[in-house]
């Protein structure tokens, strides 16, 4: 049977990277039908139809579906669920909000943050902040799954799936949107960037974080931060990389002034090349770094910026 995949749609636009990575994961389970929903979702649906491996796109547009509110989005998915054995999504905050509710409504266990598909019932997922990998087999008739996008390559573009319109479910009317505070940035998005430069507690202040940003801009990178830096108020929470923040796996990850707590390593240890700059040579970050530089970041980073 087919797989229903909830596309990541923000303000009418498809988040291509996250959605295309989830398509790669979902293809192993059957024909992929993408659901694009929102206040406006037609353009997102058209974009999703071009992802390789998508067999059909369903578009649901309704005011009640705008701003990714969980109650109405989950009601829509449940109304469509009968035709599918697997209901999946990329593991974004929106999907984590919605899909666990879907699983509750369907009386099935969710399989969150799956990193590999073993077979139609069996999936691998990290537990304990990635300190262990567990393979679980579901006995539920329907599987509700979120896929950790950092472990799957994005499916290519070039497909031409058909697009159908579906109706929203009755609006449960339980919640309403008030406002979004989205950080405007010209930098690449953290979870899909090819290069990430992150700062930790060693950066010392919100002002000094500008140094991290300069290095990031020199490399065309996204900016990340450790939980310690976020807790200390040096960086906003949506920059947080780690178990409690975002999981990234760029080609190059540069950790500056980050000690390498387990919870941070959980968010970046699948990066291809890891560079660590820290003045404490005992810092655990050096155990995962391909290239470690024991140095004062306030000297090394400006030097690095000038030499790149």
């Amino acid at each position: 049977m087919a797989v229903l995949l909830l596309a990541e749609v923000n303000n009418g636009e498809l988040a291509m990277d996250a959605t295309a990575k989830a398509v790669t994961a979902a293809k192993a389970l059957g024909d992929v039908v993408v659901l694009a929903c929102g206040g406006s979702a037609a353009a997102a649906g058209e974009a999703a139809a071009k992802i390789d491996g998508v067999s059909k796109v369903l578009v649901a547009e309704d005011d009640s579906l705008s701003h990714r509110l969980a109650e109405s989005t989950a009601a829509l998915i449940v109304s469509l669920a009968g035709d599918y054995d697997h209901i999946v999504a990329p593991s974004t905050t929106d999907a984590k909000n919605v899909m666990a509710r879907v699983a509750g409504l369907l009386d099935v266990m969710i399989i969150s943050d799956a990193t590999a598909v073993v077979d139609a019932d069996t999936f691998e997922r990290p537990i304990y902040a990635g300190n262990a990998m567990q393979t679980v087999k579901s006995s539920d008739s329907k599987k509700v799954i979120t896929f950790r996008t950092s472990t799957f390559d994005a499916a290519g573009e070039g497909g031409s799936a058909s697009v159908e319109t579906v109706s929203a479910a009755a609006n449960p009317g339980l919640s309403e949107w008030v406002e979004d505070k989205v950080a405007e940035s010209d930098r690449p998005e953290l979870t899909s960037a090819g290069v990430v430069v992150s700062g930790g507690r060693g950066v010392g202040s919100e002002e000094s974080f500008a140094l991290i940003e300069q290095l990031a801009d020199k490399l065309g990178a996204a900016v990340g931060a450790s939980r310690a830096a976020v807790d200390s108020g040096y960086a906003p929470n949506d920059w947080q990389v780690g178990q409690t923040g975002k999981v990234v796996a760029p080609n190059l990850y540069v950790a500056v002034g980050i000690s390498g707590a387990i919870q941070h390593l959980a968010g970046m240890k699948d990066s291809k090349i890891i560079v660590a700059i820290n003045k404490d040579e005992e810092a655990p970050i050096f155990q995962v770094a391909d290239f470690g530089l024991v140095a004062d970041l306030f000297e090394a980073v400006p030097d690095l910026i000038s030499k790149l």
Binding site: K137, E281, Q287, F291, G292, L304
Partner: peptide, 30 residues
Amino acid sequence: NRLEIIKTVEPAARAAGITVASVDELVAKL
């Protein structure tokens, strides 16, 4: 339980890296 645990393993360890002596060496390695 709806999910049966098939196995639990340690995550794959990363191969040990190297320590570079200077920013110049770091840039060269990168």
